[in-house]
Design a protein around this nucleic acid. Structure first.
Lengths: 335, 335
DNA sequence: CTGAAAGCGCTTACAG
DNA sequence: CTGAAAGCGCTTACAG
């Protein structure tokens, strides 16, 4: 462990501090015997280089900032696991920033991040707007800090690399699956708040619906479970529905609860599908058909991509799209 | 924003760098006019002190390490929100460490944390064992880095402060509630893996059961939903049961699914209760009776406690116990 | 292959 | 109230 400084090591190993530094960072530049002697002393003393001194002198921090909107969303949390696993492999520490609800603070946070001298930024906020995007561009261009959008899309721009699945395609496929079951009053249940990712799901839904000559119907609900119940009751009293594609599993489950309370049979009367394949989908009865988003992988690949950028390695693609699956379970006819 | 150094500010404001530093950190020691001039220049230049230089010179990092076992657990993620909100108020950055499954790496991580010069540590790993606890004690004593156990208990020790609820009491109360309904074959469904927190829940359960002269029955299941199903089927084929207290909401829901598949009525035949009051409890049908653990608050209070320790403020209590509620819903008779 | 020395950008006694 | 200077613990050309 620490407390010992590089001077202590140098003294005990009878070399200069420059040699100690080299033995750690450029072992090949040090004669094997010297290197081993130094390394042994390091071990004995439990020496760990002071991260501040190292960062100040080298101008690198081996730290990445991860910016998230709200940790309690299952997808964000699971992405963090993927990020952390890869960060560990490449020896990066993670500085975590959870955004406040008032996004005014975001620029402050970004300044702080610049001051913290992180080597890279992983941005997981899928509510990104034009102002924020411009700010990220500035950080990348002016300060040369690489940024990766993870499970976040900003359509029409490729200057900030991103990792995600093709949500438009997934939205299309899952909607098409319900159409193929013979459903023709298929609603998409999306969110009131604007998430880029949900926009993509919606556009895929619209494409499938229009292609089939059906009428698109998008209802927007708040994320809050308690409000959903009333909202659903009210809305579907006046609408004929035989298919539901929800942008999140939990919203799908929430809908199913309301349907059941109204003695609607699932999947006989209504097919239901969600997005994400969380535990909600598996614990639900009937078990939920949904798009399986490889969210852990998205985090892991995002972090890996960032390491490449931090090492100035060339990127084969600026927009990485991972494959997704659709898992058919008991809430759809084809199961 | 940054890139400008303290020298640039000093030059533009026509003062020495010492004065700039004071204007930022000890404003009262600087003449108001000078201070304002300096502050304006700082604003103009978008100056942000380099965090490494500051950390190196001051030997403080205004950074805390948060150590968690697995971010995807709903309780951990929600605690993070509480921690981050308070950290923001007190201007602390968060260095996040997600533990590997192989706990061999934990000591390495702790060394890293020491090297990173964090001002404090929040430890959220409720699987803490004797070796790890001893290590935390060393960090606290040898390196003077304060540690707070958050939603983590290590019974019989008070040298590391902790924040939690009284899980023993909660376990007792929820079990007692089922007993009062007239249930007398109440099982606790706990986990195979050893969590201190679950031990407490079990001990409360045992106390209530023994007090009532009933036979205690603790079954342990893996956390994995898929395995639970079979496990439950097998186990309860051979046991008479009219009450279930599960250590996690999701386990309770998982049990209910198996029960329903076997045409058992809830709550008529079996009362079911869980712990945590997550979204699982609310989305379940019937809605789940459970102990409401104020997990966001536990995180927030833990972080607040840590700030006090980092400021050398005296602690009024080393073991903070927050209040909990029991929310009676439709899976118990008393609802 | 190794050492002496400058420098990274701050803070903080110490004088004045 | 303000400035000059030392020092925090490293890295990295530059010599040798």
């Amino acid at each position: 462990m620490s407390k010992a400084t590089i001077y202590d090591v140098a003294g005990a190993a009878r070399v200069s501090l420059a040699t100690v530094s080299r033995a750690i960072n450029n072992p090949e530049k040090v004669k094997p015997e010297t290197r081993e002697r130094v390394l042994r002393v390091i071990e004995d003393l439990g020496y760990k280089p002071n991260a501040f001194a190292k960062g100040l002198a080298s101008r690198k921090s081996t730290t990445v900032a991860v910016i998230v909107p709200d940790m309690s969303r299952a997808s964000i949390a699971e992405m963090m696991n993927g990020i952390a696993d890869i960060a560990r492999v490449y020896k990066y520490a993670i500085l975590l920033y959870i955004l406040d609800s008032e996004d005014s603070s975001e620029e402050d946070i970004l300044k702080e991040i610049v001051a913290a001298q992180v080597d890279g930024i992983l941005y997981l906020n899928d509510e990104v707007n034009a102002r924020q995007y411009a700010f990220l561009q500035r950080i990348q261009n002016e300060y040369q800090i690489p940024v990766v959008l993870t499970n976040t899309i900003y359509p029409g721009h490729e200057d900030i690399p991103s990792v995600s699945i093709d949500y438009d395609k997934a939205g299309y496929e899952i909607t098409k699956a319900l159409i193929d079951e013979g459903r023709n009053n298929i609603f998409m249940v999306s969110t009131v708040r604007k998430y880029m990712v949900n926009d993509q799901k919606e556009s895929g839904y619209l494409r499938a619906i229009e292609e089939a000559g059906l009428t698109p119907r998008i209802m927007r609900t708040s994320g809050r479970v308690s409000i959903n119940t009333e909202h659903f009751n009210e809305y579907f009293k006046n609408h004929k529905v035989d298919g539901i594609v929800a942008v999140r599993d939990s919203i799908a489950v929430s809908f199913m609860n309301v349907a059941r309370a109204n003695h609607v049979k699932i999947p006989e009367d209504i097919s239901v599908a969600g997005f994400q394949n969380t535990k909600y989908a598996i614990l639900a009865r009937p078990q939920l058909t949904c798009v399986d988003v490889p969210i852990y992988d998205i985090g892991a690949v995002g972090m890996r991509l960032l390491t490449k950028m931090m090492n100035q390695e060339p990127l084969s693609e600026a927009e990485v799209i991972l494959d997704h699956d659709i898992i058919f379970r008991a809430t759809t006819l084809k199961s």
